[in-house]
Every structure is written in C-alpha cells, then in structure tokens.
Design a binder for these strands. Structure first.
Lengths: 222, 222
DNA sequence: AAAAGTATGTTGTATCTACAACCAAAGGAG
DNA sequence: CTCCTTTGGTTGTAGATACAACATACTTTT
C-alpha cells in the first residue's frame, strides 16, 4: 500500500491531504485494496455499488453497450482518478461497466463509511451533506447522458441515442418520453421541424413508430 | 418562515426530511431568509459566494452574458429548487448571475456551516466529503459549459462559444487552449477537418487569428 | 360547437458539415 | 540528415439540417 501514497495525494478525494491524513482516513474508513487482471470487470452494468473506486495502477475503461450492441469506450481512467462516484453518491445502479484495460489495482472506499461516520455529531447536517452529494451526483449523471446524445454527429443518431436510452431506462421497447417535440429538440440541440422530419423518416424506414410522446422501437434483425 | 416548510420538504437538500428535521437544521445552520424585488440580483457574475440558495417563492433566472453582450437565459429556478450549489461547493466564483424574475424569497444556507459542523467527530472524513462535493461540483460546472457549447446549432457557433469562454476565463482576447485540433473537435462533437475549415474561414473573415493552440479574438466593432 | 391557440408534421431551399482523400508542416528517432 | 509519425489545413462531394413558411391535428376556451 505504501507505494501508492504518492498517487493518492493526487486523487481529488484527498485534495490538500498529507500522507498521514490519508493513512488515518484509510484506516478509519476500512478502505480495501484489490487487484484485477487485464480484462476483468471492476464494475458491471447494473451493479448497485456502495463503493467509490480510486485507480492506483493500470488503466481502467468506462464502457457502455450502445443500441447496436457495440461496447463504446466513454472514458479512460488513469491512476489517481476516481470512478463510480456519481452512481454511488446518486444511489443509482450503474449504467456503465468499468473494465481493466491493463492489470490494475483499485482502492475501494465504502461510501456508507464516509457518509455515516460523523452522524453522531449532527445528524441533520450529515443528511444534508448526503442529499447534496446525491443531488450533485444525479445532475452529473444526467449531464453525462445528455452529452452522450449531443455528441452524436447527426440528428438521426442523437434521436436514436436518446430513445434507446429511454427504452433501456423503462425496460421496454415501447415507452413514453417526458418531453414534447420542442423540448426534445432543445434537449438534442436541434431544430424542431427538422426533428419531426427525421422522426417521420425513421418511421417510414421501419426503425420505430410513434404517436405523440409514445414511441415503439422496432427490434432490428441483427 | 412557517409557510415555506411545505416547499422545503420538496427541496432536494431535504430529501426524506420531515418538518422537525428541517427546522432543526435551519436553526443549527443559521439559515437566513431574504426577499428580493423583481429584477434584483440574487447572485452576480464574479461573486465568490459561500451560500447555497433555495428559492422559496417567486421565480429566479440563471443568466449569462454571451460574446455579443446579450443576456442569455440559461435556466429558470422555481420554488423549492436549489441554485448556486455548484459554484459554492466547487469554491469557484460565479460565471453566471441569478436574477429575480418576480418578487422572490430566498433561503440562504451557509455552506461553511454544513461543511464544518461535524468536523470534531472525524476531521478527515469531513474533509473527504468536502473534497467529494468539490469534485462533483467542478464536474458539474464543466459539463454545463460543455453542454452550452454543444447546444449551439452550427459548428461556427460552437467554436465561437468555446473560444469566447476561454477568452473570458483567461481574461484576454489572446490566449492558448489546452486542446489540439482533434481534441477540440471531439469536445465540440465535430469532424476535425470541418473544424479546421471553419477556423480558417473565421480567420479569413477577420473574426480571429490563430497559430497552433494560440488564438486571438478580434474585437468586433459593435 | 365555433373559435382561438398550441403542438406537430411537411415541404422547399440554401447552407453547412461529415466524410474521404490528400497535402503540408512540424517534430522525433535513428 | 532522412525517414517516419503526428498534427493540422485543403478540397470535393454527397447528404443532412436549419430555417422559413405553411398545413394539419389536437386542445382549450367561450
């Protein structure tokens, strides 16, 4: 563990910490070191983790399976970086997987430990902090997803990206969305009439059908 | 104050709180109620606030001045919603202003109070929580800005939006950016060669000049 | 039920951009 | 210095989309 302290001082979680403080915290919070072979999963899609990971060595990749079944690399995690903090603080199941791209070592911090350690002192203040973390984390997830959609190169892809996510979220190929056309156009940063046109085209092509805010994705043959 | 408790139970900061807990917290954290007339500023661009605001009544608008000097509405805040939490937790000066669109009442929570209230108990755990909040909040700000750029309808506007932000950040019309062309293209969700083409066009039009990663915006005549 | 208002779909056009293919400059490695 | 790699600019083209203007359907009001 000693050899990793230099990396930990660079971790945002330990901003302005010296090594003694880090050591005290790791002891106190019962942090766990774990190693993974290349290719192993640190977190799997669907996991409801209560841990925050700090990568100590190796490389980790945040990946997600898109609507065509491809594993898409969303982000590379290098030593010293946090991962999983958003889903863990938001108390939401992971919608991404984290895989070791090389042999890797991870320090797992139990979120419940840092959350509840000081609740004796001021119960309500601790809950407020916990809520604030949850709020910021949920916003983070929301923003990340929106950026994912906005990053698609064509409106068609933006739409499919958004609708696929909704389909997964609602666990059905048939679902309603909480946005009207203008709101969806704004969310995807597109023109409303262009959005309507592309939706019609997708319907003609048999990719999906829709009525008002209710959409049904057609299972593609591949 | 009593009349606002119903709204506060809907505030994400008090998720799963009952009224007694909220009352205890407000007492403990010395929260301040303040009213504003329509048009008044709750927060001004450049402020380094240590407060988190909860809107109790009225409507507030998050606004930002764009590169043409227009005040752009970024977000509407309705009663029960938080505002300012990202800049406050990130410990960064506000890059937006918050204005009362109607006569409004705001409950101000002092972030230092909720941050340090429980530090006697476990100094390091409290710092970790504080760092975690800072980290999530900074990410939030970063994402928000990226979404602002990505939301522009044309690549030209995306580029100008990004470069203007950099110019403001670095407080100069002449500045270097931390991204190479491919990275900038990825950040703005565009094709690299298309990015190069638009940059060249902007240069021909006299909007800006650039050399590698260094850009100089031309002060427009309006 | 008629009227007014709102939301969504359609069409045409000018513009923009992704994409591919290529060229040029800069920087490193040997 | 030369070769090779990386980075960035240019060009041509096909296709996509913003924008405007209009048409249609659905809602709400009166």
């Amino acid at each position: 563990m000693k050899e990793y302290f230099k990396i930990l001082t660079k971790c945002p979680l330990f901003f302005q910490f010296n090594e003694a403080m880090i050591a005290a915290f790791l002891e106190e919070s019962d942090a766990k070191l774990q190693t993974y072979n290349k290719g192993a999963a640190l977190v799997l899609h669907g996991d409801a983790s209560q841990q925050i990971g700090i990568l100590l060595s190796g490389i980790a990749q945040i990946r997600q399976t898109d609507y065509e079944g491809n594993s898409v690399l969303l982000h590379q995690i290098l030593p010293g970086a946090l991962f999983g903090e958003a889903f863990t603080c938001a108390d939401q199941p992971f919608t991404v997987s984290v895989l070791a791209a090389k042999d890797s070592a991870v320090l797992w911090i139990d979120y419940r430990k840092i959350q509840f350690d000081f609740q004796n002192q001021s119960q309500t203040a601790a809950y407020v902090v916990s809520n604030l973390l949850r709020f910021l984390a949920k916003k983070n997830i929301f923003f990340t997803e929106r950026i994912r959609h906005l990053s698609k190169r064509s409106l068609r892809e933006k739409i499919i990206s958004y609708l696929s996510q909704q389909s997964v979220l609602q666990n059905s190929l048939s679902f309603s969305i909480p946005l009207n056309r203008q709101e969806l156009a704004d969310y995807l940063a597109a023109d409303r009439s262009a959005l309507s046109a592309v939706l019609s085209k997708l319907q003609n092509e048999g990719v999906l059908t829709f009525h008002k805010n209710h959409f049904t994705l057609t299972k593609s043959a591949d």
